[in-house]
Amino acid sequence: MRANFDSLRSVARRGIVATLAYGLGASLSVSAMAAEPGEAKLPQLDIQTYPSQIFWLIIAFIVLYFLVSKIAVPRISEVLSEREERIADDLDKAETLSKEAEQVRAEYEKALAEARDKAHAATREAQEAAAKSGAELEAESHAKISGMLKDAESRIAAARAEAVGNVRSVARDVAGDAVSKLIGVQVAEAEIDKVIDATMEARS
């Protein structure tokens, strides 16, 4: 507005200078005309016309003043203020709407973040559970397998002891029988056991 006003003023200044120069030329030509013999002077200087002009000027101006101030100005200012109000209203509405939209967006983002957190938590839980059950299962099967191994080992040891025991009694019977058959001497079982023990010790 300020700049607009200044530029208007500079235009006005330039215009005034131009019109002054221009008016000077025109008035020179006017005075040249007036110098001609028989020519009347300027009609504007004819005092006879003044009362009529002043009279009609007053009437015209007062009438126009009333028309402008009582009819035109209120009407225009009404339209202008109506428009201003309407624009302000629209701006207000736009602001509330944008605020609402902002709120909705914030809510949406919050919900989104919550959902993401929940999903993260669920994933972590599932992972943890899986890892735990895996470890348990492993430990269980480990324990089972080692139990089975132990069992098997003890069974093998028992079978072996039994087998060794059988061998001893067979060997004692066979050795006793063989000695009595060969030399007809009954050897005491304790004696045979001693020999068997010594033999088995030497063999093993």
């Binding site: 009529s52 009609w56 126009l64 028309l67």
Partner: peptide
């Protein structure tokens, strides 16, 4: 002499013109 002259006529036309300009347009 308060005769209605050409000057007064054009003042009248101006009054009508300004009024029309301001009211008819609005």
């Amino acid at each position: 002499d308060l005769s209605y002259t050409t000057s007064a006529l054009w003042m009248t036309i101006t009054v009508i013109g300004v009024t029309a300009f301001l009211t008819l347009s609005m």
